[in-house]
């Protein structure tokens, strides 16, 4: 089995590489959108006096995550078709992954922005910062590590879910898996699964580094000198 997998990889490396690139493109596109939406929405709902709204939004995002991906693709295809948009291929998959990626980013952003030490906020206010200045100069910089952690979680999770997108023609590494299943070729299924896993692990490690680098220096562990 291992040898057939290796043979497939050595003879089809170009094809596998192309699928991987497609996969990455889908995940990055979706999570790019998820970050923009998640940050904007997360900051919006974490303002004082919007606790109720925040709870509702997080609840809905939580429910979205429980919808099986195939079902979500189906629902989105119907909606997109009704709107006259491209209903198969990359578009419904990117939209679905964006929705999935929203929850971890939203949750982390809201928790972090709201969870800043109130004494620090009061210090800012007491020195004459406006609420907007407190948000951009204090709350968000302090929330960056948590936001990055949420993004990392969302990306790793979406690498797996994106594989199923091949079913509705979005391409990516899922294609290998589906072709393997259709042709009872276990080696293809395994090559696809292995590549998805390796991609997830690789991205997790890389994003871990990004997470550390994006943490303001004063917040990093071990700076006490």
């Amino acid at each position: 089995m291992l040898s057939t997998m290796l043979r497939y990889l050595t003879t089809h490396w170009e094809y596998v590489g192309q699928l991987t690139a497609e996969h990455i493109r889908i995940v990055f596109l979706a999570n790019g959108l998820a970050v923009v939406l998640g940050l904007a929405l997360g900051i919006f709902i974490s303002k004082r006096g919007r606790e109720g709204l925040a709870e509702l939004v997080l609840y809905v995002a939580g429910i979205l995550l429980t919808v099986p991906s195939l079902a979500l693709y189906g629902i989105l295809m119907a909606i997109l078709k009704a709107l006259g948009l491209m209903s198969i291929g990359i578009v419904p998959v990117v939209v679905a992954l964006t929705l999935y990626g929203l929850l971890p980013i939203l949750r982390n952003t809201t928790t972090a922005v709201r969870g800043i030490d109130p004494a620090m906020i009061e210090a800012g206010r007491g020195m004459g910062m406006s609420e907007t200045q407190i948000l951009w100069r204090v709350r968000i910089p302090l929330a960056v590590p948590a936001i990055m952690a949420g993004l990392r979680q969302a990306i790793v999770m979406n690498v797996g879910i994106a594989a199923i997108g091949a079913y509705i023609g979005a391409g990516g590494l899922g294609q290998l898996i589906f072709r393997g299943i259709a042709n009872t070729r276990a080696d293809l299924v395994l090559v696809g699964a292995l590549c998805v896993s390796l991609l997830a692990i690789g991205l997790d490690v890389a994003l871990g580094v990004v997470e550390r680098l994006s943490t303001p220096r004063g917040l990093r562990k071990g700076v006490r000198g």
Binding site: A119, M120, E122, A123, M127, L142, P216, G218, L219
Partner: peptide, 12 residues
């Protein structure tokens, strides 16, 4: 305005 030390911004 000065408060107890917790009021310093740790990221600055």
């Amino acid at each position: 305005y000065a408060i107890q030390e917790i009021g310093l911004f740790p990221h600055m």
